[in-house]
Design a protein around this nucleic acid. Structure first.
Length: 842
RNA sequence: GGGCGAUUAGCUCAGUUGGUCAGAGCGCUCGCCUCACACGCGAGAGGUCACUGGUUCAAGUCCAGUAUCGCCCACCA
């Protein structure tokens, strides 16, 4: 045993991390069978972003469970994943190296990134393969810095086997899962109006939308009736879409417009003849009660267009500019004035023309209205008709929808109310899951298309590779039976150029981490997983999509439990902004308070509840860790030894009896994924142990009442300290490991979780006695406090009054009470009152 | 407009199935250099448990409604 003279938290993190690494403390033993394993489907994190306190918060919650289960004897499968495909990495590479991807460029094997990096003004166009290589290289660097933070936080992951969602195996697994969904008919390609981000020039999915309030203006525009009998006035916030107008629509019950249904009007300026139609989605109380339908201004236009079987007059290109050629029905001369303009410029031009022609009625009236954005974009989404890949999600299939909702019901949610978020999302789905993106750094769709003699692609009958050939890159690999010379040639083939949405890959994390089809032995030991920890914001994306993929491939849930962490809020109760979160970096918190203290703060928040960013809580955690050092040191200097059988004194038996209750409560709490309750009971007990119990027995432990009484105290101290260190180990892994090392063999993190059994018969002691003595001791201290004298001041005489039954119990610990209070003469007198009081004569 | 959650001491939060539940810590006040800890110890003061009704012998605890805050969804002419 070696106890430092001055125990300190300094240096514990480096020392024990090195030890854990050297000893493989958190290494997964894959020889263990499924029922011995506790497996966690860790959220893979995007390392090219920035780690902030919110991540520290939720990942700590997961680690608490991992450490608890490990101590319970389960072999914990807790991998770390890096989710580095997708836009964040692309943007970081563009800025870092000063390059941009130009897929039309051939690959240059000797390419090296420009020396100036992100400082050069012009982004250097590079080939797709080079671009992907840079993404790979930079994200690998980013992952190292993230790993350092996670290690400092003491996440007990097995660092020998992290996975990356962009590596060859993940790519192969993504492609294989996709091909199987394709074969089952659960994945399909379709040409349809698609929400489109004009900045990134890619389609986006329903789950990635967000509304933002933007200023706009109602423009009242008169449409001349074809019969010459006046005009019909509509209001629109998007006058630039006038050339895309295909109809006017009003509600079927709207008497104002009923006579007009079936007639036609002419679009102002553009002179296209369009019908007046009816549809129940038209709102009589909005604007003038009649709207123009354009292809496409918003999602309602898409519904009208589809259900009313209207023609398509597309005017917007994928770059967000008006097409060079307008629809055939519109006046080409007028259209030429807006062709090629941005939406904004076209709006100004058309409004000017409308005003000039007199079709604009009055001045536009400004409004603020919600507009759909891609969550990572900064320009409003447009709707463009494109060919995209989809995966069925129940939106258009009631049986599938019901089956997926049933999966949600079968999953254990922590906290339970999070399940309704899942159900609402599934019930509110309006379309299948759009998984294709027109980007570069992602998993390519493993398909090719035959080109006809006219050079047109046959999209309905894609060529797919053999599973054994995966991963493939259809833009550089050839489909079976073709050679590279036939690429892009009539009669030859062309590769699909799209990549999968990041969720299409991350929906497969159980398969990727478990080595599905690559290491089925491992997969069989971890799947279905025990736990999916994640944030509430991605229930609709990550959680749901993982359930969908598992449902199709395995006809089962991917996990039995899901633990949902809340948000970190600013002190002003707002969701903590990225910018603020970046200012307070996790590393600076570790340095200021210590990792254990930061973990304590995170552990103090229940699953599913939002928590305030609170350095005060971290200070308390730090205080707890320091107290653990000092109290342990003190107890051990007496020669504390775990030996419950030697505990004979009533006060000592009371301590162990109370400890037994704490162990039972903490265990039940952890089993219910309620880590805050587990921490709370341990913490409360620990402070009582320090402030009351140790004070009460230290004289006796020094030997004031003989060897046997001292031995009982030492055994109680040792037994309790051992259990306390283990109860705190999931929360404060560094300080508990440090103290454990002073007097025990091995790692506390592999020591068994404490049980009532190890307390022996002492667990049957009077668990309330310690508290009762504590009340009396507090009164004695109070007397000294009001006399403004030191606690070591002698008390000449003290009389304890209270219920006779309480006094009888107290007498069993009278000597300890007298010693702690330095009471020369202690007597007991029954009283009427139930309340325990002590009259103190100094 | 629909849904979910929250609303308990100045602050951050506990309060399981209704009956010592009115609590903890921080902060504050007043003391104490007590031989583990001054990064400490002790003792105090602080709340009509958001509001309004209801059920009950009994309600922070159940029901209904209201208000405020947060989030999700819908609406986007």
């Amino acid at each position: 045993m070696s106890i430092p003279d001055k125990p300190t938290l300094d240096g514990l993190e480096e020392r024990w991390n090195a030890s854990w690494e050297a000893n493989g403390t958190y290494r997964f033993d894959r020889s263990r069978s499924r029922d011995e394993v506790y497996s966690i489907d860790t959220p893979p994190i995007t390392a090219s972003g920035s780690l902030h306190v919110g991540h520290v918060f939720s990942y700590t919650h997961t680690d608490l469970v991992a450490r608890y289960q490990r101590m319970r004897g389960r072999e914990v499968f807790y991998p770390m994943g890096w989710d580095d495909n997708g836009l964040p990495s692309e943007r970081r590479v563009q800025n870092y190296y000063g390059v941009r991807c130009d897929p039309s460029l051939p690959y240059d094997p000797d390419f090296t990134p420009p020396a100036g990096g992100g400082t050069s003004k012009e982004q250097l166009p590079i080939s797709r393969r080079s671009f992907v290589e840079l993404c790979d290289r930079l994200t690998a660097e980013d992952e190292k810095s993230y790993e350092a933070v996670w290690r400092r936080l003491a996440l007990s992951v097995d660092w020998s086997a992290p996975y990356r969602t962009i590596d060859a195996r993940s790519t192969a697994i993504s492609q294989k899962a996709f091909l199987r969904d394709l074969a089952r008919g659960n994945a399909y390609k379709a040409e349809a109006p698609t929400l489109w981000d004009i900045t990134f020039r890619t389609a986006v999915a329903q789950a990635e939308l967000e509304d933002r309030d933007r200023p706009g203006a109602y423009h009242r525009i008169g449409f001349p009736r074809s019969d010459g009998d006046g005009v019909i006035s509509i209001e629109t916030t998007r006058p630039e879409l006038l050339p895309a107008c295909v109809a006017l629509v009003a509600h079927p019950d709207d008497e104002r417009y009923q006579p007009l249904f079936g007639t036609t009007v002419r679009t102002p300026l553009f002179e296209a003849e369009v019908p007046v139609v009816s549809h129940y989605l038209a709102a009589p109380d909005k604007g003038s009660g009649i709207a123009m339908i354009c292809t496409f201004g918003d999602l309602t236009d898409v519904v009208w267009w589809r259900e009313l079987q209207l023609p398509t007059r597309a005017i917007l290109g994928e770059d967000g500019r008006l097409l060079a050629e307008g629809p055939a029905e519109v006046d080409a001369t007028v259209y030429a004035r807006v062709a090629g303009k941005t939406v904004h410029a076209a709006r100004e031009e058309i409004v000017a023309m409308l005003r000039e022609s007199g079709a604009l009625e009055g001045d536009p009236s400004p409004i603020t209205h919600p507009v759909k954005f891609y969550e990572k974009g900064d320009r409003p989404l447009e709707i463009v008709t494109t060919r995209q890949w989809y995966i069925r999600n129940g939106a258009r299939d009631e049986d599938l929808r019901a089956a997926l909702i049933a999966r949600g019901e079968a999953l254990s949610w922590h906290p339970p109310h999070m399940q309704v978020r899942y159900e609402h999302w599934v019930n509110g789905l309006t379309g299948d899951w759009l998984i294709s993106r027109q980007r570069f750094f992602g998993v390519p769709f493993p398909v090719w298309y035959r080109l006809g003699s006219d050079g047109a692609a046959d999209y309905d009958n894609p060529i797919v590779p053999d599973e054994a050939a995966l991963p493939v890159d259809p833009s550089s690999d050839c489909p079976p039976g073709y050679d590279e010379a036939q690429r892009g040639k009539p009669g030859g083939f062309t590769g699909d150029t799209d990549v999968m949405d990041t969720w299409a890959t991350s929906s497969l994390t159980p398969q990727i981490a478990g080595g599905w089809t690559f290491d089925d032995d491992l997969m069989s030991r971890v799947f279905p997983y025990d736990l999916r920890p994640q944030g509430q914001d991605i229930i609709r994306t990550w959680l749901f999509s993982t359930v969908v993929r598992s449902h199709f491939e395995f006809d089962s849930l991917p996990w039995t439990n899901t633990a949902i962490s809340g948000w970190i809020l600013d002190p002003d109760r707002k969701k903590m902004s990225k910018s603020k979160g970046d200012v307070v970096t996790p590393i600076s918190l570790f340095e200021d308070f210590g990792s254990d203290a930061v973990r304590y703060w995170a552990a103090s928040a229940r699953l599913g509840t939002d928590a305030a960013f609170d350095t005060g809580q971290m200070k308390i955690g730090r205080r707890l860790a320091i107290k653990l050092l000092n109290a342990s040191k003190f107890a051990l200097t007496f020669g504390a030894t775990p030996d419950a059988a030697a505990v004979t004194e009533p006060l000592d038996r009371s301590l162990l009896a109370a400890l037994g209750e704490v162990i039972a409560d903490a265990t039940a709490a952890f089993d219910a994924y309620n880590h805050t309750a587990a921490l709370e009971v341990a913490e409360t007990f620990f402070w009582t142990f320090c402030d009351d119990y140790i004070e009460l027995v230290k004289e006796r432990a020094y030997g004031s009442r003989g060897d046997e009484a001292a031995a009982s105290a030492k055994a109680a101290l040792g037994t309790t300290l051992s259990a306390l260190l283990r109860l705190f180990a999931p929360f404060l892994p560094f300080v508990t490991e440090e103290v454990w090392s002073w007097w025990q063999e091995g790692s506390v993190h592999h020591a068994g979780w404490p049980t009532a059994d190890e307390l022996r018969s002492a667990a049957e002691g009077d668990s309330g006695l310690l508290g009762l003595v504590g009340v009396a001791l507090s009164q004695v201290r109070g007397a000294k406090s009001s006399a403004q004298v030191s606690m070591k001041t002698d008390v000449a005489h003290a009389v304890v009054r209270g219920a006779a039954a309480d006094l009888d119990r107290l007498r069993a610990a009278a000597d300890d009470l007298a010693a702690a209070g330095r009471i020369a003469s202690l007597t007991f007198e029954p009283a009427e009152s139930e309340n325990l009081t002590v009259d103190v004569t100094l």
